[in-house]
Amino acid sequence: MTAEGLAVEDLTVRFGRGARATTALDGVSVTVPAGHTVGLVGESGSGKSTLAKAILGIVPAESGRVLLDGTDVSGLGRHERRAFLRRVQLIPQDPYSSLNPRRTIAQTLAEALDPAWARVRGHTDAITSALEEVALPADAAQRYPHEFSGGQRQRIAIARALITRPEVVIADEITSALDVSVQAEVLRLLARLRRELDLTMLFISHNLAVVEQVSDEVVVLRHGHVVEAGTAGDVFTAPASGYTRALLAAVPGRREEGAPLT
């Protein structure tokens, strides 16, 4: 196995101090090999979003390591850290808060390419092709976020994350605020991008069916512990842990075997 990709080793995150401290992540290890999508499933309080934040350094880890292509990112200097953050991009959950309402789509995308000055000029080609990638017309660039629906905004957020051609994408519950039909479209888009761009992605969701659709491997998280990890096929067909089985059993409306759609 190569060291290419993102790896989290024995990561522990605690909030608060003293007797009031709560452990959000307790010795969690997750590997996202290059070119793979790893689905991270868990219920609220499982620590799945905390893991995303800890990887990006938004919350401090108490112990453990985050490795990108085999390099520990914790000891990086300011400059290298910035480079790391360009190689790993986050797509946030809420389509209504992920875009600055006062800036055009072009300005938002330009900022990802040019954080210091966010000049649109000189990046128009990149912006157009980034929008094209997520199936939005080029004239979307001149418009403001409120002119788009939730699904379209989420596409823009995806475009923003992908425009720098990151090595790893972290998608945090990106479809949970959307209507089912829109969610389906965003998932189709992700599937296509995964094929075309050979994405390396950590896909976080509470929805097992969604995770199954986009992931090669699955990690099940509960109360800050990894309960189960394996290939999607293994975890969903032959879950080893009782918790995973309970989760799967709770999914409503599981189609009876062999029932066709017509």
Binding site: G16, S44, G47, S49, G224
Partner: peptide, 11 residues
């Protein structure tokens, strides 16, 4: 209007 459940154990 939107409440996003914080994904952390509620003390």
């Amino acid at each position: 209007g939107r409440t996003t459940e914080p994904d952390r154990p509620r003390a």
